[in-house]
Simulated scan of single mutants.
Amino acid sequence: MGRRNESYVPLLCNYPDSEKINSVSEGAEAMFCRLLAKCDDEGNYYGSPARLLCKLYALRFENGSMTEKKVLRYRDELETAKLLTRYVSGKVAYLHINNIKKSLRKDIARKLGYPEFTEALTSKQDNESVTEPVRARNGHVTPIQTNPIQTKPIKDKYMDFVSLSKDEHSKLIERFGSISILKEKITALNDYLGSTGKKYASHYHTILTWARKDDKGALQKKKAELFPIKGRNCSHTGCNLPAVYEYTNDYGHTNYKCIKHMPESVRAKYG
């Protein structure tokens, strides 16, 4: 029997019963098999959806049955199932098939075609933007920018319509100094959303905006309040009510008026 010199991919007899394999969709499993066929002897291969589409699914891409969106979904399924790990080297995205055994003989040089995978390189994928080429159907290569996915914080639901993250809720408690006051703010927003059907990108910032308007209105109202002038009564003939408004007429005389006898323009201003 001749010596086996070529590399091989060990699809072991227990492959059909693998919990990881059976946890992903059929499309993701098919991608895994294609990756096994194309990766180097260390289990490394290109990792961006654009290159995976061009390298693994060229014919399906041409006939329109495979898209970059599907490739991205399948790749992420395999990563979630811990069948592969993504990493970045030289601002290029790669992936590493975990626990691969692709060579029988230790005395045969391993075929390596991609940067070596290390755990230190996995942290870069969340911090770097990676530019990868995608091959269009006319044969031209157009670079696209693949930016890291920004995960949104988990938000808790308050009443029927208001959503706040734990951090936002804590900041609002600190802002208003009381849970009961915050509850009033949430109730007001919830009632408004329920009655109008309006949508806001951030309920946290909406509550803050409304609070600033309330504070401004309260300040203006406070400025508009009138207080009795100490030791002065209304100068209107026959009126001895406490004066709350002082002004100088055209002749340079100072007059004092109560609420009842102050000028109409002033009364309208102070409500």
Results as ranks from 00 to 15, higher is better:
residue 207 I to K: 03
residue 116 E to R: 14
residue 156 D to V: 04
residue 79 E to N: 02
residue 114 Y to C: 07
residue 168 E to F: 10
residue 122 T to N: 09
residue 80 T to K: 04
residue 105 R to V: 14
residue 82 K to M: 10
residue 93 A to M: 02
residue 208 L to T: 10
residue 90 G to R: 08
residue 69 K to N: 05
residue 141 V to K: 05
residue 190 N to T: 10
residue 205 H to T: 15
residue 172 L to N: 02
residue 129 S to T: 15
residue 165 S to W: 01
residue 114 Y to I: 03
residue 139 G to V: 04
residue 106 K to W: 14
residue 203 H to C: 12
residue 141 V to E: 09
residue 77 E to C: 11
residue 134 V to M: 01
residue 156 D to C: 13
residue 161 F to E: 02
residue 73 R to W: 02
residue 149 I to G: 03
residue 78 L to E: 00
residue 191 D to N: 14
residue 132 E to Y: 04
residue 176 F to D: 04
residue 204 Y to T: 15
residue 90 G to M: 12
residue 157 K to V: 09
residue 112 L to N: 12
residue 115 P to V: 08
residue 203 H to S: 13
residue 72 L to D: 00
residue 190 N to M: 08
residue 200 Y to L: 14
residue 132 E to N: 03
residue 99 N to T: 09
residue 146 T to P: 01
residue 165 S to H: 02
residue 84 L to H: 00
residue 178 S to E: 11
residue 158 Y to G: 02
residue 136 A to F: 08
residue 160 D to S: 09
residue 81 A to Q: 04
residue 143 P to T: 06
residue 160 D to I: 03
residue 65 S to A: 08
residue 78 L to R: 00
residue 152 K to Y: 08
residue 76 D to H: 04
residue 184 E to L: 11
residue 156 D to L: 12
residue 162 V to L: 06
residue 149 I to P: 00
residue 75 R to E: 00
residue 119 E to Q: 12
residue 111 K to A: 08
residue 71 V to E: 00
residue 69 K to Q: 03
residue 201 A to V: 13
residue 91 K to M: 13
residue 157 K to M: 07
residue 136 A to V: 05
residue 78 L to D: 00
residue 68 E to M: 03
residue 120 A to F: 15
residue 175 R to Y: 14
residue 142 T to W: 12
residue 193 L to M: 13
residue 74 Y to N: 01
residue 198 K to Q: 10
residue 125 Q to G: 09
residue 129 S to H: 14
residue 125 Q to M: 04
residue 202 S to I: 14
residue 151 T to S: 06
residue 68 E to N: 02
residue 198 K to S: 15
residue 133 P to E: 10
residue 113 G to S: 15
residue 90 G to K: 11
